[in-house]
Each structure stands twice: as C-alpha cells, then as structure tokens.
C-alpha cells in the first residue's frame, strides 16, 4: 500500500477538485447520502478492477485501439456488478436503479486507466484506481452532506432538523446547488493546496 499514491489521489490531485473529472455524476447523484455512498463505492470498485485488468494486459493491448479496449473492460465490470446485484441483492439493485449503469460513463475510470494503469504494474494500478475512487467519494459525500441536510433536513434518510422548524431549500435538491457547492469547495481547497506547494 503506497502512501504517496493515496495522498496524491485523495488530496494533491483529487479527481474532482484538481482534475475536475466525473463532474456530471457529482452534480446528478449527490442530493441523498445513501445514493451517493453506493454510487461512489461502485465507482471505486470499478476503477480499481478495470485499472488492474488494463495493467495486466497492457503489453498486449495495441496502442491505437487502447481506449476502445479500456471502455470494453470498464463496461464489463459494471455489467457484471449489475447482474450480481440483480441476482443476489434484488432490493439493493432496485434502490440503485440507473446509477449502476451510469458508472460506465464516469471519466475518472478511463482517466486512471490512461494516466496510470497502462504504464504501471498491476498492484500499483489497482491501488491507484481504488484511491482515485476514495478521492471521488470524499468530495461527493461532502457535497451530499450539505445537499441532503439543507434540502431535506435529513442525513442518510434520518431526520436531523425537525420538520416543524425547517424550511427546505428547494435549490439544494436540484443539480445547480451541487455546482455552487463544488465551486465553494474548490475555492476553499485550492489556496490550502497552494500553501502546501502544490501547483494549482
């Protein structure tokens, strides 16, 4: 377990606030913590396994079709996960709805395959994929925390602010709020990173 890669992927070049990848899902799925959590777990597992697979086959994959092969590998894992959920955990599968399939379109997964897995040994690639997923999870959970709390007055579906005294912020339920929250996060984080000597 390489600590450098962990810090790099979760903090110094976080996929969301530094690389600004996977933004569509950051806007779409973050109004409830439960959905966000399951989605980010799915992305983390898929990024890890697809990076591992790309790395194992890296010397065999022809350069000019490497992206097609990467998409194939990513879709492969997402569909397998979807089928296994439908078979053994029909309830979880139902509550996830279209989220699982949407993992295929997450740019972070292909980003890690291209940036790391295609030129690293399998162990490093797996760890790199997983930590990139953790970085994604950290930021999305942070956004979802504020959106669910202010939009519904709940956290993980449990009421935190009593309904009688709470006027829900409608904008927090809709995607634009994630856009503002993400902007605020980037605004807060970048000066801190700059102080730590990271080029921003």
């Amino acid at each position: 377990m390489n600590k450098g890669i962990f810090i790099e992927n979760v903090w110094r070049s976080n996929p969301i606030f530094m690389q600004v990848l996977g933004i569509c899902s950051a806007l779409a799925v973050t109004n409830l913590l439960t959905n966000t959590f399951t989605m980010t777990i799915g992305v983390t597992v898929t990024t890890g396994l697809s990076s591992l697979t790309v790395s194992i086959f890296k010397s065999l994959i022809p350069r000019r079709v490497r992206m097609i092969i990467q998409v194939l590998i990513i879709s492969f894992y997402v569909i397998i996960v979807d089928l296994l959920l439908q078979t053994f955990f029909p309830d979880i599968s139902k509550s996830l709805g279209p989220y699982v399939g949407l993992i295929i379109t997450n740019c972070i997964i292909m980003g890690r395959a291209e940036a790391c897995a295609i030129s690293s040994p399998p162990g490093t690639a797996l760890w790199d994929g997983l930590t990139a997923g953790f970085g994604y999870m950290a930021v999305l959970m942070c956004i979802a925390f504020f959106r669910e709390l202010l939009g519904f007055g709940t956290l993980f579906g449990i009421r935190i602010i009593p309904a009688e005294i709470f006027l829900p912020w409608t904008i927090m339920v809709t995607p634009p709020s994630a856009f503002f929250l993400l902007g605020i996060i980037i605004w807060i984080v970048k000066p801190i990173l700059k102080k730590q000597g990271v080029e921003v």
Binding site: F76, L83, F88
Partner: peptide, 25 residues
C-alpha cells in the same frame, strides 16, 4: 485479431454470467 479475440472473450464471459443468472433474476 487482438481486438476481435479480446472482445469475444469478454462478451463471452458476460453472456455466460447473464445466462447463468437469468433464471434467478
């Protein structure tokens, strides 16, 4: 040839998993 074999292999595994879970689903 590589692309063909690779796609065939992965789609084959997917089809197999799909068939074997279909009844349960």
């Amino acid at each position: 040839i590589f692309t063909f074999i690779f796609c065939f292999l992965f789609v084959f595994i997917l089809a197999f998993v799909n068939q074997s879970t279909r009844a349960y689903v």
